[in-house]
Nucleic acid binder design. Structure first.
Lengths: 102, 102
DNA sequence: AATATTGTTCGATATATGTCGAACAATGTT
DNA sequence: AACATTGTTCGACATATATCGAACAATATT
């Protein structure tokens, strides 16, 4: 189901996670995902960049281990990886407190 | 006392803070500072890069608002800015849980 | 089979970043 | 005044990053 390459939990590193979060667009995506508490369709993100760039950011989040990224039919769906909270408890919570974005 | 430029608390942004933390060397420095719970002399950091590079990283941490950086005599001293915990409660705590570095 | 939809990848470009050694500046020491 | 210490800044370089439009691939629809 998850045809795209995802890092194993043990391969996820804190610095990569933080670097992935250290970009406004990616932080927005993660914030959106966290609030949704469920998968969100690729197309539902309102960002101010083209789809090639959005694809690039989503790939970074995936390779950092922050999100799941799967394709179903001709659409893609994204969701937060729960392993992040297991690995870094409280991290997303503290980060998301400050991400306006309702 | 703090001759070097530091951002005001209101100028500190989450993405810049996260980006600053998203580098192994800078994360080490912050980890060291957090464990010390006091100022640490510039020269006391054991990093695997030259002093020009260390200076660069320290500047990034300062400009991101993470640390205080002051000069006293011919030495510099660094300390964590307490405003970070006020702005992003729990962030450093969750980050530092995973930074080995006794 | 031809077309439409949904993203990814590619090539190009501009900017940022991490790194170093050398020069510089500020201070303290002799 | 000359020297030593402590970092910063500069110039150079290599690599990474963000961005775009266009080409491509996979799937679904007609």
């Amino acid at each position: 189901m998850s045809q795209l390459p995802h890092p194993l939990k043990k391969e996820i590193t804190l610095t990569e996670v933080l670097a992935a979060l250290g970009d406004p667009i990616r932080l927005d995506i993660v914030s959106h995902l966290a609030r949704a508490k469920k998968e969100v369709g690729w197309g539902e993100f309102e960002v101010c960049v083209g789809k090639a760039t959005l694809s690039h950011h989503i790939k970074k989040l995936r390779l950092a281990g922050l999100i799941n990224h799967r394709k179903d039919g001709k659409k893609c769906y994204l969701g937060l990886r729960k392993e992040i909270n297991e690995l870094y408890p409280g991290l997303l919570k503290s980060v998301l407190k400050k991400t306006g974005h309702k």
